[in-house]
Structures are given as C-alpha cells and as structure tokens.
Design a protein around this nucleic acid. Sequence first.
DNA 1: AGATTGAACGATTTGTTGATTATTCAGAAA
DNA 2: TTTCTGAATAATCAACAAATCGTTCAATCT
Lengths: 207, 207
Amino acid sequence: MAEKDSIRDCIVEAAKKRFSHFGYGKTTMAEVASDCAMSPGNLYRFFPGKLDIAEAIATEDYSRHLEHLRKLAVQPGKDARERLHDLLFEELRRTYHKLEKDPRAYEMARVISQERPKFANWMLENERKILVELLDEAERRGEFKTADKEFTAEMVQSATMKFRYPQLWSKLTLPKLERELEGVMNLLIDGLCPHAAERRQAIQAAE
Amino acid sequence: MAEKDSIRDCIVEAAKKRFSHFGYGKTTMAEVASDCAMSPGNLYRFFPGKLDIAEAIATEDYSRHLEHLRKLAVQPGKDARERLHDLLFEELRRTYHKLEKDPRAYEMARVISQERPKFANWMLENERKILVELLDEAERRGEFKTADKEFTAEMVQSATMKFRYPQLWSKLTLPKLERELEGVMNLLIDGLCPHAAERRQAIQAAE
DNA sequence: AGATTGAACGATTTGTTGATTATTCAGAAA
DNA sequence: TTTCTGAATAATCAACAAATCGTTCAATCT
C-alpha cells in the first residue's frame, strides 16, 4: 500500500509541474503518465480522471492556506475586529495574487470550481468554520455578540462575496478592493445604528 | 422633428416586440426595419447600432423601475429599516423574476451589461443615489448615523452584490435568497457590536 | 437639398471536418 | 491473481468554410 501511495505521489508531482508550467488544458494525461514511466491507462487505477488529479493538488495547496487562515483567526494579541480584518484581507490578497501573478493556478481554480461546484462549496464551508471559531472567541471576550454564529458566518461570507469573484472586480486595483472590503467590514461590525457610530468616533478621538 | 420621434418610436416598438418574442440574438436589423416599412440602412439614421436600440428599450423600462424604487425609499409610514428592506428586496425579486419568467429580457440585460459596462455602472449609480436619499432621511429621523453617505451607500451595494448576479446563486430558490438577504441586511444595520444586539432584543421583547 | 435605399463589405456566427485527447477494456506481463 | 499495457472508443477541440448579419455608403428618389 505504501507502494501505491508513492505512485500516487509521483502522479501528483508530475501533474503539479506540468499544470503550473503549461496549464491544465495544455497538459495531457499521456504526458503525465510518461513522466511517471507508465501508460496512460494506468493513471486511472490511481485517479478517476484528470480533474481529480487537479483536485488533489488544489486540496493539498488549499489545506496549507486553511491552516494559515486558522492561525490568523485566533491570534492572541489582536482583538476580534483585527482578526476578522486579517482573515478577510488574506483571502482577498490570495485571490488577487493568484489572478495577477499565477494565471496557471487561476485557470486550475476556475476549471475546478466550474466543473466541481461541490469543491467550491467545501472551501466555503471550511472558511465558515474558521469564521465561527472567530465569532465564538469574540463572544467569549465580549467583543461581538450574535445569536446564531453559524448563520452569522454565512451572512459575513455572503456580504463579502464580491471579493471572492474576480469577474465582479471590473479592473479594480488591489488598493481599491482593499478600501472597499475595509468599508464593508466596518459596516458589518458597527452597523448603521447610531450608538455604534458614536462608539467608533469615541475610539478614534481617544487615539 | 415630431416626425423623427415617431419613427424612432416605431423602431423601438418593433424591436421591443421582436426582442421579447424571439430574443435579442435571433432578431435581425432587417426584420426590425421591415416591421417599420423601411430599409435596414435607414435604421442607422435613428440609432448608432443594434445594441443602442436594446439600450433605449432597457433605459425606458429601467426608468419606470427606478421611479418605483424611489417611492419605496421614501415611504412615509415606514422606518428606515423597513424602507431599506423594501428597496433591497424589490431589486432581488425583479432580478429573480426576470431570470425565471422572462429569459428574453434576461438575455438582453446580460448582453447590454456585457457589451456596455457603462450602462451597468449607470444603473448602480442611480440606485446608489436612492440609497443616499434613504440614508439622508434616516439620519434626519435619527435612525441611522453615517459619516459619508455616498461611501456608505457604495458599501451597502458591495455587500449585497451577490443578490444582483444570478451566476452566484447556484440554483438557490427565491425564499432562500430572501432569507439570506434578510440576514445580510440585519448585519449591515445592527452590526456585530453587542449594544446593537441588546437593542434588537429589547425591541423584540417589547413587541 | 435631404431622405432613403439596397447592394457591398467585413465582422461574427454557424456548421463541418479532422485531429487531439480523455477514458475504457481486452488481453499481456508479473 | 494482480498489475499494467496500449490499441480502440468516444468526447472534445481546432481549424477551416459557408452563411448570416450588422453596418456603410454610393446611388436613387422626393
């Protein structure tokens, strides 16, 4: 079985190289197979299809990212607002960076979420769990107060949806997107209610 | 000049019928021209191109919608929360309805915002103006309090972006979308801050 | 003159063909 | 038996041709 795993790894590694070099579309199964010194047909004993290889790669990469997010969500020295800020900004920056600097990775992400909506959904769920952790901790410290944290996390994701879909960015620069995310976040935290605004002003005056 | 206008109207009417019957793509300029008993070439004395006819139709229709929205935004008997609710829900329902019941109109809207980003932008601006009116009136009554209303309106639009793009709905039903919009709206109004939540509870207890 | 036409032009779309490629599976190799 | 191969298959893609359609404009009409 260890043998099987190492062959699997070989396939993933070869595909990773090819995908990031030539792109998902321009990589053929025959090429990946020959990189691992096997026939194309044999690949299918290890993966159901080409897309599943891409998914394995994406999952691995995304898991690392998720760990990073989790750390941001529970930073000890920062208050809930700052932690939420770090979390949301990190996601925006990652997406923007992939789009700008790594078109191959972006192509892969696009194909996967197109063909496998379940995968995109799984990512959202994972991030929602982290948001719930953040909200839990924030309530414990008396910073935020929400009735249903699972639902609230869903609403935060809904309200920041725009920052996850480059198609909606219409050539906005990263600084502009960041300013906008900052604004939405402040609205989500403080709301439109007067006392929140007063509190915000009091804090700013104190600084 | 009155003559010119009536010819223009004839073109718009003919195109409106054809577009809503067969769709924008399946309607030819020659057909519209023959409906108005003129040659295709003559159309171009009244409109720069096919897309401009569609834009004229969309503008007319959208202006009516905008008037409706404006009324909702300033309803005398309702508080700011209710008026914002009515405004956002009306837009969601209109979009959903177009998508479900009127694929021709949806096709037209899609083509226009694709080919004429300026037009989509103009619509957003108009709705933003209405939002600003709403925020102004709300501040006057001491309901909401925001520093920069233009910016706040932009942020409200940003946070409710998801409900404007059916591509992001992934087969969600209207009731589910409405529940989600309701949640986002509550978050925007009350925020995550504790006093807002307390106030909400106090109000609910009083009812 | 100004208004209108409709043939001509070029861009876009549609349809078709051939090649490429993902996937399968009967059989060979281990 | 289990593991693997590679030719066969079917789906997808690319390239090209044909047709369609938006748009223009020289010629015609009023």
